[in-house]
Design a protein around this nucleic acid. Structure first.
Lengths: 215, 215
DNA sequence: TAGATTGTTAATCGATTAACAATC
DNA sequence: TAGATTGTTAATCGATTAACAATC
């Protein structure tokens, strides 16, 4: 059963709130008003209050928000209080870089396996985890109750791999391949299209140059 | 002088149009209507026409759009027809992964240097490029007319580095550090906050579980 | 109690979609 | 010419901001 739908725009802002609240905790700040937070984050106080009230009343009139409490609650909303077993598909540069991203483990994302199609890599270790072959995948997914698959294969391999993953019951794909995956709608896909990000940077760079060339 | 401002939403869609048009070229498709493209891309035809007409009339009534022409024009809008000298700051896993991303070079992004703060790495090569120390940076930036800096340093180092980069006239920063950089408004920043991307995935995963638990 | 600040409703702004006249 | 499809205006939808009563 669905609750009142929360917009994508709101959800994409939650991790940023979470990050700022984490920093406030480190600075020893106990409470903060939407107004003060809005100045730090360069958004409107109104937006902060609206966003948070999608999930409940976390503040208190005349006081503001308790930083630790709000941090914990947003963490729960984001599902960071639960362990998410995760595998990486593709032990290339990017796959290895992500495998070594220590931060994830702190947030409940547990890397339990790394897979590749290149037999040369079989048995090699990344961060203490042995690289396995795709043939081991189906058994492994069930055995380890893997929830998230990180897809760092080249795009010509990614589509087929997504199909295998879906067939074996994966729930979410963090996709780094330059392709829009075609999966059933109950499978969650979060895309990181690096080249597209760089292109928007390039657009802004070129625009700036254009704007300043015209007198 | 500014032209009529184009919304961020439109700009973020351009690289995706570019990617689909590239695929159409590979498939040998010569022309396409907004309607056919809309089905492929799962957006409305209306949006495609609106988006494109921000930049000019690229189509022809009764015919549609010439794929190659549109691809080239969007490429120009994105600044992909111009060479953008680029350096990477931080020769860790992520920095090296990005350095090895061949695709960039095809799109006008030319990696001309890799820098790190760790003296142990000095002189080591990544993809034929010697890792240099930060002290070489100011001279290098001017000498090579570097436009884009890719920031893959840990967040405690990133803020200081951004300041150095700005002081030495860098125009754009592709920021992978978990921090919002504080730079003058004429410096372009494009953020890739990987952990935030993973958190939105996690949100959707948890939401799905929640929705299906409630009967 | 008085002051501060939330939660929430209403107003505004911007982005998306629909419709259709222009035209190839 | 007739049919197709764009470019563009108008209508709708959704998201952001402003305002303020509720309340700690």
């Amino acid at each position: 059963m669905e609750e009142k739908e929360i917009s994508k725009a709101v959800i994409k802002r939650l991790p940023r709130y979470y990050r700022y609240l984490g920093e406030l905790i480190e600075e020893g700040v106990e409470r903060i008003s939407s107004n003060d937070l809005s100045k730090k984050m360069k958004v409107t106080a109104s937006q902060i209050r609206q966003d948070l009230n999608n999930f409940g009343g976390f503040g208190q009139q005349g006081y503001g928000y308790n930083v630790k409490y709000l941090y914990t609650e947003i963490g729960k909303i984001l599902g960071l209080d639960i362990l998410h077993p995760m595998i990486i598909l593709g032990a290339g540069n990017l796959g290895q870089a992500l495998a070594n991203y220590v931060d994830f483990e702190k947030r409940g994302f547990e890397l339990v396996g790394i897979f590749d199609i290149n037999p040369v890599l079989e048995g090699m270790g990344v961060r203490g985890i042995e690289i396995k072959m795709i043939s081991d995948l189906p058994f492994f997914l069930k055995e380890k109750k893997v929830e998230i698959a990180v897809l760092t294969l080249p795009k010509n391999r990614a589509a087929d791999m997504a199909e295998i993953l879906v067939k074996n019951g994966i729930k979410a794909i963090w996709n780094f391949a330059h392709i829009d995956l075609d999966v059933p709608e109950d499978v969650i896909v979060e895309n990181v299209h690096l080249s597209e990000s760089l292109m928007t940077l390039s657009y802004n760079l070129s625009k700036y140059t254009r704007d300043h060339k015209e007198k």
